[in-house]
Amino acid sequence: MAEKPKIAIYGLGACAGCDQAIIDLNEVMLQVADAVDIVLWPLAMDFKYSRIQAMQDGEIALSILSGSVRNADHQKMAELLRKKSKIVLAMGACACFGGVSGLANFCGKEDIFNWVYRNAPTVINPTGCFPQPETDLNGYKLTLPEFFEHVFTLDQVIDVDYYLPGCPPPPELIGNAIVATLAGDLPPKGSALAPRKALCDTCPRNLRKPNRMEIRSFRRIHEVEADPDECFLAAGIICLGPATRSGCGETCIRINVPCRGCFGPVPGVMESAPKFLSTLSSLLVVERDDEIKEAIDSIDDPVGYLYRFSQPSSILGQKIAKKGLEN
């Protein structure tokens, strides 16, 4: 009998939501567990790092990596799994684009430390100390990993074969991705294993979208009782549907809240933020210069919408990590 293909599932700088989404495969997960050999999945089972290290290069058929890369430990694990795997799948918005935690690239590490360990109202810190990479405590040496100044996407650290966007990706797409990989039925390397359309194209509200959309001013979601059938943008509510890939099942739209872009750009587009920015400005119908300024000023925190999941992969935010921590 041929050996079962090996699969590794691992979260780097992640929230474990992607692991939960895999567990949400439910019975399908049990079938997968029968058909493959899960060599690594810390959330669900015991494992030894040394076991992975001892493997041949390329011995793992598929590594599913979620999370962004924030410290040397993450990088080391990503590099190890890359080496041992035939196919690496970047799973979830964090691995693909940086994710919500990537917003941390907008503020410095020092600022975070100062707030968390000194200035937060509940902090009691008479000496004003910070946690240290190395501490001597009554003769015991305790160490902590230092983290990078920057949040990286997975493909800024290792070579990624396929992408599975979403926060988290829905179980159906996860199941399809695993089946397609094991069957070798895959699109060209670098593809996202998700539908190719934009969210607007699959949005149930598209039917009632006006032929010519005109926005005069913007409104925030808590200020209005949104019509559950009306296009959010037509109502002046920011929705990233036009620049976001479909595949989520329009779950947010269906509970009457607008899209925030967790599926990332549509195929052929490097980054969704500039596309959406262009869309948004073209929909604005205002005449004079001062009116333009006023309308744009009414968009509170455009950065927080445009880069909600994508700061680390954005044109201005991206950096390439130093390679080769493994050796």
Binding site: S101, A104, I221, D301
Partner: peptide, 17 residues
């Protein structure tokens, strides 16, 4: 051994988000 800093990078975002 880790820290992400949500309390800081949420600043400037609309509260309802």
């Amino acid at each position: 051994s880790e820290l992400r800093g949500f309390e800081r990078f949420c600043l400037g975002r609309p509260a309802e988000e």
